[in-house]
Design a protein around this nucleic acid. Structure first.
Lengths: 219, 219
DNA sequence: AAACTTACTGAACACTGTTCAGTAAATCAT
DNA sequence: ATGATTTACTGAACAGTGTTCAGTAAGTTT
């Protein structure tokens, strides 16, 4: 009976339509001003219908959140060509900043908002695979750096967390507007993106100095 | 005529009452579930009355946001006794983490939410003084470190931004729950606060290694 | 006593996420 | 073919949100 299958396919398509509508409204107007009613209007169904395909607004948000991590991993695609692990780490930082700037609302969804994780907690079954995969890329790169002799006396996971936090901090402080409201920045009239790049370059400098702490001679 | 003055005083008191009610509801239930109607109910006035004292919900949030920064500066009070600038920097990091952990919602209000800054933008008059003051403390500490010969070849403002970002990143990733959802952390069953402390210690280690990079010779 | 000012409120507006009884159509069983 | 059942969907409602505004009652001034 192909009928059942066709119906099943139709159901799956509608679910995708909901997600597409949500994604489109979300990217052009931000999450704050994307309501269930907006999504329903866009797909030309009643708001109640959405609840037949998604149990929650959080479940929709979680699906977009997963897509976001897939996109981030796409951004990390440029790293494939970089053989030196430290150069790869640097390129990863640049890709991360670029991703956070080009997908500000998605970034917020992925790593600032608590709702998507709330959904993970409510459906205890599946875990946070997408996020893990992205973090693993960092973790492996740092580990490879250490295999090459860099960051010798440091703990792999801990430096990874520190590096991630720094990047996350820079990106969120920039996007939220807090960096731009610091007097020093506002008075200098400096471009905020330039400031972000400068701060990142400073981080790279710092990491470069730690890199070779095998045998240093201080004079 | 003392009558006008008494009335003026009464008005100011009511404004304070509103803020107190907002602060209390906020600290015990979080901002998400603190509505204008809740605040009104607590002070036993009509919701509309609040709009005679505050133009916005954002204006209330902004006042609490300012209080938060004053509290943070209070946390930095312990630094007065620390003479060595690098030790002071370390103590500052610990105080920052402690503040962010003990005042999670206030921290979010201060450095994650965009609403309070939106209010600064709408009332173009006053600036973000409280935030600036807190950042200045960091800036001056870093500058003092450099006067002592540490972080010699690095840019003062840039390292300050990097350090702040790292601390902010660590605190927000912890509080939002994202750190706890990383597979590595979840599987290890490690206490999340311990992880945060470990990561912070790693950062200190890293800074310690950069500290003396006046003239290094890599062999 | 009348006019005016001040402080406050009830009710509404336009939203929000979510639920649920009810409906119309398609499918199944007899 | 007809009746029973399942499926897909919806209108209307619930309880909430921030915000506005006409209207009221009390206090002050003339």
């Amino acid at each position: 009976m192909g009928v059942v299958e066709r119906k099943q396919r139709h159901k799956e398509e509608l679910k995708k339509d909901i997600l597409t509508a949500a994604r489109e409204l979300f990217t052009e107007r931000g999450w704050e001003s994307t309501s269930i009613r907006n999504i329903a209007e866009k797909i030309e169904y009643s708001p109640a219908t959405i609840y037949l395909y998604y149990k929650d607004k959080n479940e929709i948000i979680f699906d977009l959140h997963r897509e976001g991590f897939k996109l981030l991993i796409d951004y990390f695609g440029v790293l494939k060509g970089v053989t030196d692990p430290f150069e790869r780490l640097k390129a990863m930082g640049r890709a991360y900043i670029r991703f956070a700037q080009e997908n500000q609302d998605t970034y917020k969804l992925m790593l600032v908002m608590e709702e998507p994780l709330q959904h993970v907690e409510s459906c205890a079954a599946q875990d946070w695979d997408e996020g893990d995969r992205a973090f693993d890329i960092l973790l492996r790169t740092v580990a490879e750096c250490q295999q090459k002799g860099y960051f010798k006396n440091l703990h792999t996971a801990n430096i990874s967390f520190v590096i991630w936090s720094t990047m996350h901090g820079l990106c969120t402080l920039r996007t939220s507007g807090h960096l731009g409201h610091v007097g020093l920045v506002r008075n200098s009239g400096m471009d905020i993106d330039l400031l972000l790049t400068n701060a990142y370059e400073e981080l790279v400098k710092m990491l470069e100095q730690i890199k070779h702490q095998k045998n240093i001679t201080i004079t």
